[in-house]
């Protein structure tokens, strides 16, 4: 564990808590892409299957349980509890165009052709594009509530901090995992446009308005 990975995990935790609080407090999931949340639930399910087979640390196990629980809770809040506030007119990204390529790529490029490894690789590829429906929805509605932009900033920062963690681990432990690194870079790059808007607008108290 290193400071970059720890702050990355905490940023990830913060993002999930911000989102849950936003939906619960406002009793509305307006502006939130349910499809991205479904993709995150798939990502955590396929990545954390080893939760029951391998014990890394209490921290690792607790975080996995929290990510799994909170992702399913978020999907439940969006599609069941606050279904009436779900904006399906703007949440129209075809997630099969993200899932299928991730499946194919995981079968072609992986570290080992075993079920657990293929599922882990699939989850890494899927996570790198899982935010696209949400970013697509923000671009369609042309704006995002500031709380949603804080959520996106924390979520985007988490994998960005993981990139620093991978640099650190390569330098200090000469450990690296190209699949995670390449996917993590793609994932972080997808947020760049949003990061620019967030820093130039939201932090100045303006609403996040995308150029129409």
């Amino acid at each position: 564990m290193n400071i970059f990975r720890l702050t990355g995990d905490l940023a990830h935790l913060l993002a999930i808590i911000i989102l849950l609080l936003k939906i619960w407090k406002t009793r509305s999931c307006a502006g939130i892409s349910g499809k991205s949340q479904i993709l995150f639930a798939i990502v955590y399910t396929t990545r954390y299957l080893d939760l029951v087979t391998t014990y890394v640390s209490a921290y690792n196990t607790l975080m996995k349980i929290f990510f799994l629980g909170s992702s399913f809770a978020t999907v439940y809040l969006i599609y069941v509890k606050f279904k009436a506030t779900y904006d399906h007119n703007h949440d129209t990204f075809r997630i099969e165009f993200l899932i299928l390529p991730a499946v194919i790529l995981a079968l072609l490029i992986n570290h080992a052709f075993t079920p657990l490894e293929i599922l882990w690789t699939f989850s890494i590829y899927l996570e790198s594009v899982a935010i696209l429906p949400q970013l697509f929805m923000v671009s369609k509605t042309g704006e995002a509530e500031s709380i949603t932009s804080h959520y996106l900033f924390a979520l985007g920062s988490y994998r960005g901090l993981y990139i620093l963690n991978w640099i650190y681990r390569y330098a200090m432990e000469s450990h690296y995992d190209l699949i995670a690194i390449v996917a993590g870079i793609v994932q972080t790059v997808l947020y760049c446009d949003f990061f620019y808007l967030y820093i130039t607008k939201v932090l100045k108290g303006k609403k996040l308005q995308l150029p129409a």
Binding site: R5, D50, V56, N60, M63, F67, H111, H175, D177
Partner: peptide, 10 residues
């Protein structure tokens, strides 16, 4: 091989 211990990451 090298990638096994990247499974300690979330």
């Amino acid at each position: 091989d090298v990638d096994l211990d990247s499974k300690d990451e979330l």
